[in-house]
């Protein structure tokens, strides 16, 4: 891939990288600020994870070039994401449905 980039394109990319850096810095400040609001756990969780996901998305999309990656990479990542999701959901459900779990009679 490296050979296909022209100097002009690379300079354009560099500007994007710097903008992404700015966005990440701002979002970090927002995360901390929200942390000091001491929201109840559920909204805090939603906001915290939402901001983290946006930041992670920016890193993955621009720094790791996932905006313009090949199908085979997407395939691997989508599959991994599915298994990860299954793991989270089933762990939490198994816990919730366990004797002495969340549902205490």
């Amino acid at each position: 891939m490296a050979q296909t980039h022209t100097a002009e394109e690379v300079r354009k990319h560099v500007r994007v990288y710097l903008m992404v850096f700015g966005a990440l810095a701002v979002l970090t400040v927002v995360t901390v600020a929200v942390g000091y609001l001491h929201l109840p756990i559920v909204p805090a969780l939603v906001v915290g994870l939402l901001i983290a996901s946006v930041k992670a998305g920016l890193v993955a999309a621009y720094f790791m070039h996932l905006v313009s990656e090949r199908k085979v990479i997407y395939g691997v990542l989508i599959m991994t994401g599915l298994f990860l999701l299954a793991m989270f959901i089933l762990f939490i459900s198994a816990y919730a449905d366990q004797d002495g779990g969340l549902i205490v009679s």
Binding site: V34, G35, A44, L49, A52, K55, A56, A60
Partner: peptide
């Protein structure tokens, strides 16, 4: 290296702030 950064992006709020 970006992945290591990415993990930290999740670790930071979930451990320090929530």
């Amino acid at each position: 290296w970006h992945f290591v950064d990415l993990v930290w992006i999740f670790l930071f709020p979930t451990i320090y702030l929530l």
